[in-house]
């Protein structure tokens, strides 16, 4: 199940774990990424906490934790090569996997058509 946030993150949900990344729209706004700072595996984050930071040539931006949960895995590949996020934001460019505190929390998020309508 694919869900989206107003902060331009996508979540791919399976068995209470969300794989989280930033949307193609967000990547287009940011431009070429040169650095990604990822959370620690094992960190427990609340909804809205700064979970990761992306730096483009232009500026730094936070990536917020979309729901409450525990970081169970991060994508080391994008730490080594941030351009993967530009090339493939909604697949190979994922950021982290989040074990949700309550799987039902995801029900309030947007589906893809609602998200795409929101960014015009």
């Amino acid at each position: 199940m694919l869900k989206f946030t107003e902060d331009h993150e996508w979540l791919n949900l399976a068995d209470g774990v969300a794989t989280v990344g930033i949307t193609a729209h967000a990547v287009e706004q940011l431009g070429d990424l040169v650095y990604v700072d990822l959370p620690e595996v094992g960190a427990t984050l609340a909804k809205g906490d700064a979970a990761a930071t992306v730096e483009s040539v232009k500026a730094a931006s936070d990536v917020y934790c979309p729901l409450e949960g525990e970081i169970v895995e991060v994508n080391e590949a994008i730490r080594n090569d941030p351009s993967i996020v530009n090339a493939d934001p909604q697949d190979r460019g994922w950021f982290f996997r989040l074990k949700l505190a309550r799987a039902s929390d995801a029900e309030g998020l947007m589906d893809e058509s609602a998200y795409l309508a929101s960014v015009g």
Partner: peptide, 10 residues
């Protein structure tokens, strides 16, 4: 213009 289509890096 802060950038054109290719972006700052290119």
């Amino acid at each position: 213009p802060v950038q054109f289509a290719p972006g700052v890096m290119k």
